[in-house]
Design a protein around this nucleic acid. Structure first.
Length: 471
RNA sequence: GGUCCCAUCGUCUAGUGGUUUAGGAUAUCGGCCUCUCACGCCGAAGACACGGGUUCGAACCCCGUUGGGACUGCCA
């Protein structure tokens, strides 16, 4: 075990996305766990952009990743740092290793390497670098790379904070490239140098890095640096149990934002994926900070359950303050062509709507009949409920509203009386009225709808419906 | 192929040798509530991958098998 156990240093974690795409669910959860761990221990959370892949890294991706982090509420104490701005440091580290004989120049061409790899595979062997240049003492040259001179014997063991002790035999590891022929360092070198310089104490990352860990530990040692603690959290899978990818549909955090999810629902769902606290299902961010620990992180991969996220979202929508929802709704309303509306009306209908909506998209849909001056009339609803026979009923209700207003209790009493008088069930009156007021066959309770809309709008809509009913 | 990791209801999980007829959540189904649609409430069905050990006793410990995943790049 080569882990620092004494004089425990300050907890410092980092999230190091590469700006080659949007922040996806797996990355978001990794970020969340790192953030929670740092916050729980009163430590620091560092953001670092691993942009040494010059071809695929894009500023727009950096922007979208930071926007997604911001949406989720994951703030960072330091950074963002960019690897492309730290080239000198990497060269320094590589030079140091070169001088100390811990790295060497390799002149093998990519083509030769590929050929050797394929040949080895064909022969049933391991596709590892054969160390052709390892003892040649070559110098820099056009197209040359620098490789790490790793140990050939022995083994490296690290105590993974979620998986326990893991051992790798050095003979399974080949001499990895640390400096590319284009002069940029590779991931392994850059990540180790960065984590050393940024004094990272805990590396919490995806399962897919387990195999990289021993070679990185060897790099720490070659650089005479302290090795951080590692925690590898399991992968997030798609419904088909394979690694979550774009073909699984919505995988980016921003996708869920546009689908009408609340960030707290997303956080809650992500946290519960692989981490648990007894039977508790719902956690505020504050609770998560208090309760989070690596010891309660599971070891097995998990399928991202969108149904559960949807359910959580519904519950968070129900709990959300109307004022906040009203602030979040405009883009979703605009999607439905509602750009100008009565803010007070929106605020008034929200409490009746939230129990019915699982997303902000659905909430906007429910709000539509309230906010549009003349709600769209569903043809099917009109055909079924706004017939000539129903116009007497609508007329009676209209008269009632004109006389007594829309106070719910009075309206209900009046309508119940009317239903008895006409020998109708309450639904016999409620449904035509519902269609008249909302254009749809479903809505919150009809008396609540009337109260929210107010007498003036109710009267106008009833008249409009009467005109339709009479043909 | 090699190396490493993983394995409880469809899904997310609780469970760290006996308190378990394996608990919760979600999804599904049924019922109640009811002016529609929801919310809510009640109930049903549903899992320890398999085989060996260790032990008085195993979902929990060990080994093997099977299955799944990751890595095996001059991507990160």
């Amino acid at each position: 075990m080569n882990q620092p156990t004494d004089n425990t240093p300050r907890v410092r974690t980092r999230f190091p996305p590469s700006p080659t795409g949007a922040l996806h669910l797996g990355g978001a959860r990794t970020a969340l766990f790192n953030w929670l761990f740092a916050r729980h221990h009163g430590g620091d959370f560092v953001l670092r952009l691993e942009d040494t892949d010059r071809k695929r890294s894009k500023q727009e991706h950096t922007d979208s990743i930071m926007a997604a982090m911001d949406w989720l509420g994951l703030d960072f104490d330091e950074g963002p740092f960019y690897q492309t701005q730290r080239l000198e440091r990497y060269r320094e580290a590589i030079d140091q290793m070169l001088e100390q004989g811990r790295a060497y120049w390799c002149h093998c061409s990519p083509e030769d390497l590929t050929k050797k790899r394929e040949a080895a595979m064909k022969a049933g062997g391991k596709p590892m670098y054969d160390g052709a240049c390892r003892e040649k003492n070559l110098g820099p040259a056009e197209g040359a790379v620098v490789r790490f001179k790793g140990p050939r014997t022995g083994s490296t063991t690290f105590n993974d904070l979620v998986k326990g002790p893991i051992t790798f035999e050095h003979k399974e590891l080949d001499d990895l490239i640390i400096l590319r022929s284009d002069g940029w360092p590779t991931y392994h070198l850059a990540v180790v140098v960065d984590d050393i310089d940024m004094a990272i104490s805990h590396v919490i990352r995806g399962d897919d890095h387990v195999n990289n860990t021993p070679r990185q530990i060897l790099l720490y040692q070659a650089l005479d640096a302290a090795v951080p603690l590692f925690a590898h959290v399991p992968m997030i899978l798609g419904p088909d149990k394979t690694k979550l990818s774009k073909r699984h549909g919505a995988t980016a955090v921003v996708d869920y934002q546009t689908l009408g999810y609340l960030p707290e629902a997303m956080i809650n769902a992500l946290a519960r994926l692989g981490w648990s606290h007894g039977d508790q299902e719902k956690f505020s961010l504050q609770e998560l900070v208090e309760l989070f620990g690596l010891d309660a992180v599971g070891r097995s991969a998990a399928v991202f359950d969108t149904d559960k996220l949807l359910h959580l979202n519904q519950r968070y929508i129900q709990e959300a303050e109307p004022a906040r929802l009203a602030e979040l709704l405009p883009p979703f309303l605009a999607e439905r062509g509602i750009t100008e509306y009565d803010q007070a009306l929106l605020l008034a209908c929200l409490p009746e709507l939230t129990p019915r909506a699982k997303t902000l998209v659905e909430l906007a849909d429910w709000a539509e009949p309230f906010l549009k001056a003349e709600p769209e009339m569903s043809p099917k609803a009109v055909k079924k409920f706004l017939k000539p026979e129903t116009s007497p009923v609508l007329e009676r209700v209209l008269a009632m509203v004109q006389e007594r207003g829309v106070e719910p209790e009075a309206m209900e009493a009046g309508v119940r009386e009317l239903s008895e008088e006409l020998g109708l069930k309450l639904g016999g009156i409620a449904q035509p009225v519902r269609v008249a007021l909302t254009g749809r066959t479903f809505s919150p309770g009809i008396f609540e709808v009337m109260a929210i809309l107010g007498a003036e709008r109710v009267i106008a809509r009833l008249k409009r419906a009467l005109a339709i009913a009479k043909g």
